[in-house]
């Protein structure tokens, strides 16, 4: 088994990994105002490859909630486990409205444990009263909130089934062999958030799902990223490793910089077999 989990207190420069069925590139970088010794990035990025399945998660903790990094890391771990444990059932069922409902059920079931983590956070003793009031109100009213995209790429069959699950504006893009981006009917609404206090039930928040066959749709590539890269989304597929790293550095200098999580999965073409195979 191979994998990666971001440390929210530490950046990960662009890494490349060769796996049997795909090549992975990933990067984790904290925004300028998350780089003090006592603060942590609000994003969480993780992937795992086991038994011919690649699971990944990109979470973007909401800054204006109570310690968004807590929800990001907690939910990230839950989702990563989920795509391996529940993923096979989903693949068998196909992409139906019931899938989103079922996902919402799981997401809500993790709420209590998440809120327990939030309740156990002891605020630093030296915080001013106004800030304590602000944080306690967030803890009580919202809990810790995060947006996310989680995915499962099943390489066990020639079809390579891809299942995606998301809430919020963490983006995922799919590209076919010609480099054309596939429309997956995605909406990226920041109002769609998961919180330790409310689960997915706050103000009409929705869980979105997508499932498709890489073989059928000629999918060759998947890119997922948090909003630190949103403004340069169109450029990402064209960039080599150095350029991605440079772009991340540039983005972090911008006034509106946000944490960046980036994952780029390139599927390897199956070895040609049969009468058309070339020597």
């Amino acid at each position: 088994m191979e994998g990666y989990r971001s440390l929210q207190s530490q950046d990960t420069p662009l890494q490349s990994v060769e796996l049997p069925p795909c090549t992975l590139r990933y990067l984790y970088a904290r925004a300028g105002d998350s780089r003090t010794p006592s603060s942590q990035g609000q994003d969480y990025l993780a992937w795992r490859y086991a038994q011919d399945v690649l699971g990944f998660v990109v979470c973007d903790g909401v800054g204006g909630s109570f310690c968004g990094h807590i929800a990001a890391a907690y939910l990230g771990e839950q989702l990563l486990r989920f795509v391996f444990e529940v993923g096979p059932t989903w693949e068998a069922a196909g992409d139906t409205p019931a899938l989103a409902e079922q996902a919402a059920h799981y997401l809500n079931s993790w709420r209590a444990d998440g809120q327990r983590l939030v309740e156990n956070v002891i605020l630093p003793p030296n915080l001013p009263a106004l800030q304590v009031q602000a944080l306690e109100q967030l803890r009580q009213d919202y809990g810790s909130e995060t947006m996310f995209v989680a995915g499962r790429l099943n390489f066990q069959t020639a079809d390579i089934l891809i299942t995606l699950l998301w809430m919020g504006d963490v983006r995922v893009q799919l590209f076919d062999r010609t480099g054309q981006q596939l429309a997956i009917g995605a909406t990226w609404r920041t109002a769609d958030r998961w919180s330790t206090r409310h689960g997915v039930n706050k103000r009409g928040a929705q869980v979105h799902t997508w499932q498709g066959s890489a073989a059928e749709l000629a999918i060759e590539r998947l890119i997922a990223f948090s909003d630190g890269f949103s403004s340069v989304a169109d450029r990402l597929p064209m960039l080599n490793d150095d350029q991605v790293q440079q772009l991340a550095t540039q983005q972090l200098l911008a006034p509106t910089s946000d944490d960046i999580s980036f994952l780029d999965v390139r599927l390897k073409q199956p070895d040609p077999v049969g009468p058309d195979a070339r020597p």
């Binding site: 998350s34 603060s39 968004g68 915080l127 967030l138």
Partner: peptide, 19 residues
């Protein structure tokens, strides 16, 4: 005034750091 100050602090907060 106190409530809006709290709101501004919340909207400026990441973790326990106020930007």
């Amino acid at each position: 005034l106190q409530k809006v100050a709290v709101k501004m602090v919340q909207r400026s907060t990441k973790g326990t750091i106020v930007a």
